[in-house]
Design a protein around this nucleic acid. Structure first.
Lengths: 201, 201
DNA sequence: TTTTGACCAAAATATTAAAAAAGTCAGAAA
DNA sequence: TTTCTGACTTTTTTAATATTTTGGTCAAAA
């Protein structure tokens, strides 16, 4: 890796530490600079503004996420098992980076076009993964269905919906406890089980 | 109906008109009183405070909702059809009373114990309805499953999750348009279809 | 028993001043 | 030339305050 890129990575990693501990909204560029023992203008040498640093953080975390999913993915296994494994990876990341909650603290971050595009792109990548998983299950004769992208979107959105329900039930500014998290996870798996069976007919 | 109760109902109906037009947060007790051409203390003669008026509103709307669901419910029909009918009723109400968004505008209304209890109670009623529907489908041999309450909770929460996803995609303070609403409705129905099939095995 | 005008206290809102943060730049260090 | 920084400016947040609105009360009238 080029030296400049390495430095860029270090900054992103420093930002991730702060973000995942205090949230994006409560982290200043100075905080990050101090953690790395550099000056603020150094940060601005590598990133045009805070938004692009956040963008870098999002990208890095999701890459880590997609890698973890791919690593755990074994096409040999039956569909339901694959989905359950994926749910575990998803929720590990959900827990690890809970404090990031992109929407929170930085009001109009989600209204920003660049951020929205990036987020949608990442969502699409996850959707493509599930489309691939469902497609592979079809080839193996496990399920009978046509429109895989549509199926993937429906499944993914149902999972995310259950996650959101869990977050909403949790009091604001409080980390959802293990119990609630397990309950959520179980619901997602139960749904996956029924979902899988439903695709067989 | 006793005269006093009739007056109470009129106040609730007046409140509903305001609430569903401007939201709870933007509606004052004076607004409601003026609409009904009475004084504010009159309102307080029938309700100890605004919270109890809101409680009355919630109760009335949900009663209307449950009645509509029951009315459309025909145990003779097959499970999937029943679920689809129910989704239509649900979303009609969702649209009709979208402006109410209980959480919004009135910050700690959802933290209030009385409101939470009421809301949970209503959620339980809907859950019981679905448990009944699933139970009846089982008796008819349509599905094979044991824990109906659990199943009902999972299904209901998935529906609500998809609704929430739709709301989150909609820009703040803007009514979700017909297109988005239809898409949401379609997703709920697709999920119901797969869900139903998944319960057969 | 029901309703109201006049009133009060609490909460929301608007205003302003102070502090903190984002972002810039000329120039130093590597 | 590339990377970095101290000192600076500008924009946002936050805090403090005054002002208005709103929820809620009460004595008295209908």
């Amino acid at each position: 890796m080029i030296v400049a890129d390495k430095k860029r990575e270090q900054i992103i990693e420093g930002a991730i530490k702060r973000f995942s501990h205090f949230g994006i909204g409560k982290t200043t560029m100075n905080d990050i600079a101090e953690d790395l023992s550099v000056s603020k203008p150094s940060l601005y040498y590598y990133f045009p503004d805070k938004k692009h640093l956040i963008l870098g953080v999002i990208e890095k975390i999701f890459n880590e996420f997609f890698e973890a999913i791919q690593k755990k993915y074994n096409p040999e296994l039956e569909l339901e098992t694959i989905l359950i494994h994926t749910i575990d990876v998803r929720n590990t990341f959900f827990q690890k980076y809970y404090m990031l909650k992109i929407a929170e603290g930085v009001p109009d971050l989600l209204n920003d076009e660049t951020i929205k595009t990036k987020l949608n792109g990442l969502k699409d990548i996850e959707k493509d993964f599930f489309a691939k998983v469902f497609g592979s299950a079809k080839e193996k004769g496990e399920i009978a269905h046509e429109d895989m992208p549509h199926l993937a979107e429906l499944y993914l959105e149902s999972l995310m919906g259950l996650t959101t329900m869990c977050v909403m039930e949790t009091a604001k500014d409080i980390f959802p406890d293990k119990k609630a998290l397990n309950k959520m996870s179980q619901k997602q798996k139960d749904l996956s089980s029924i979902f899988t069976k439903g695709l067989r007919c």
